[in-house]
């Protein structure tokens, strides 16, 4: 049987759904379903996080191999490190400004098709990931399982990168290239709005 990306996506989605039945009544492992669902929905509930995640995927697609997968691998790890810092009580000044800056910078590099060396691109995304993790990774709803929340949060972030990469696949075509650059521009403009809100 030939495995296509679509069939693999369907199987992964089915597996994820199968792992989320209503388990909240188990005594020892309470709040798993709540945690997973809260984690999955949290990144898509805030436009600042959502747009920056999509922009990471877009930039990866613009840069091509190996950045197309290095950035989405580095981002969740560094985001988790940021979340860990938040949970341990390490202060990180200007978190909201950092998040807004991430949308501006990531949108701008997609718009202008910047192609820095892989190490620099990874460093830029990793730095912004710490801000996103610090701000969003530590918002556990009451009664939810911390691990399934974290898992949902990371998976959702990864899927947002995948959305960016999917959009970015049209970059190879003349019209698609304009679409990707326009999407980057849109993220940058939204980032300016977030920055205005953060500074206000």
């Amino acid at each position: 049987m030939k495995t296509t990306p679509f069939s693999l996506f369907l199987r992964t989605a089915a597996l994820l759904v199968a792992l989320t039945p209503a388990l909240a009544l188990a005594h020892q492992e309470a709040g798993q379903a709540t945690g997973l669902l809260a984690g999955l929905t949290h990144p898509v509930s805030g436009m600042d996080h959502l747009l920056a995640m999509v922009a990471v995927g877009l930039w990866g697609a613009v840069l091509g191999q190996p950045a197309i997968w290095v950035l989405p691998v580095a981002f969740p790890l560094m985001m988790a490190l940021g979340g860990l810092m938040g949970l341990l009580g390490f202060p990180l000044p200007g978190v909201e400004i950092g998040i807004a800056a991430s949308a501006i910078v990531l949108g701008a590099v997609v718009l202008t098709e910047q192609r820095p060396p892989l190490m620099l691109a990874t460093l830029i995304t990793a730095m912004f990931a710490i801000f996103h993790g610090h701000a969003h990774g530590a918002e556990l709803p009451e009664g939810a399982s911390a691990l399934t929340y974290s898992l949902g949060f990371v998976i959702s972030t990864g899927l947002l990168h995948a959305v960016g990469i999917l959009i970015g696949t049209v970059h190879g075509r003349q019209f698609g290239r304009k679409v990707v650059r326009a999407a980057g521009g849109g993220v940058a403009i939204a980032g300016l709005f977030f920055m205005w809100k953060a500074l206000a």
Binding site: V73, P76, L84, L140, L147, S150, L151, F153
Partner: peptide
């Protein structure tokens, strides 16, 4: 990376 990231957050919790 997703598994490791979830675990890193779990350390904090």
């Amino acid at each position: 990376s997703w598994i490791a990231a979830s675990g890193l957050l779990m350390f904090g919790w």
